[in-house]
């Protein structure tokens, strides 16, 4: 199967015809495991993207997101607001990623490499459909600079920028993921932007 471009794709629950997250959570809790599959399909991309941005390696990101999804399934009964599933999952993903990053534990023996497409040397920053070598190089350079700049931000600002600006999650979900208010998310995004403007002034 061809690699699917990640392109900060808006999450599918923005589709007004989609079954609401809260309904899927309740159905899962009623014993319908396939309802959870729908949640996995809906949030695996932003979850993997967040883990990748925090960890820098696709296979580590897959491992963490797999762990986060299993953990969320097992703990689903403790989720007080079923409609807050997305933010809650992102919080699990980001916490596991940060713990992983701090500990840099040894790799799991799970065969997750099988889930990577064969083009192992694929450049994750190359951009989706672009074949223009100049643009590819520019995208790679910008991606590398952005990664360095993000690493300079305090954790809350980095998370706010990653989840809101890059992954384009709604502020309410970002607030749930970061366990703070929507107003605090706005403030962290603003502070992050201010710092990024300074750090990236030669490429902006």
């Amino acid at each position: 199967m061809e690699p699917v471009s990640d392109q900060s794709e808006p999450i599918s629950h923005s589709n007004p015809n989609a079954v609401a997250d809260g309904v899927l959570v309740r159905r899962t809790l009623a014993g319908e495991k396939r309802a959870f599959d729908e949640l996995v399909l809906r949030y695996q991309r932003p979850a993997i993207a967040v883990a990748y941005r925090l960890l820098g390696k696709s296979d580590d990101a897959l491992e963490i997101v797999q762990e986060a999804l299993l953990k969320s399934y097992r703990s689903l009964g403790t989720l007080q607001k079923p409609e807050a599933f997305a933010g809650w999952l992102m919080r699990i993903v980001s916490n596991l990623s940060l713990n992983f990053r701090r500990g840099r534990k040894t790799r799991s023996s799970l065969p997750l490499n099988d889930l990577l497409d064969s083009a192992g040397e694929h450049d994750p920053q190359a951009g989706g459909d672009s074949v223009d070598p100049e643009r590819v190089a520019e995208g790679r350079e910008l991606g590398a600079r952005l990664k360095l700049a993000l690493d300079e931000l305090p954790e809350k600002q980095r998370m706010a920028i990653m989840l809101f600006t890059m992954e384009q999650l709604p502020q309410k979900q970002v607030a749930e993921a970061m366990e703070c208010s929507v107003e605090a998310v706005k403030w962290h995004v603003f502070q992050g932007r201010k710092k990024l403007k300074e750090l990236l002034k030669d490429v902006v």
Binding site: D6, S58, D123, G139, L146
Partner: peptide
């Protein structure tokens, strides 16, 4: 302009087979 650059620089094209990943998680569930 900053936002445009951040979004442009954050585009990912991870070599991940999402269908297989979802199936893998589903099997574990």
């Amino acid at each position: 302009r900053l936002d445009e650059r951040v979004i442009a620089g954050s585009r990912l094209n991870l070599p991940i087979n999402y269908d297989r990943f979802a199936a893998h998680v589903s099997a574990q569930i």
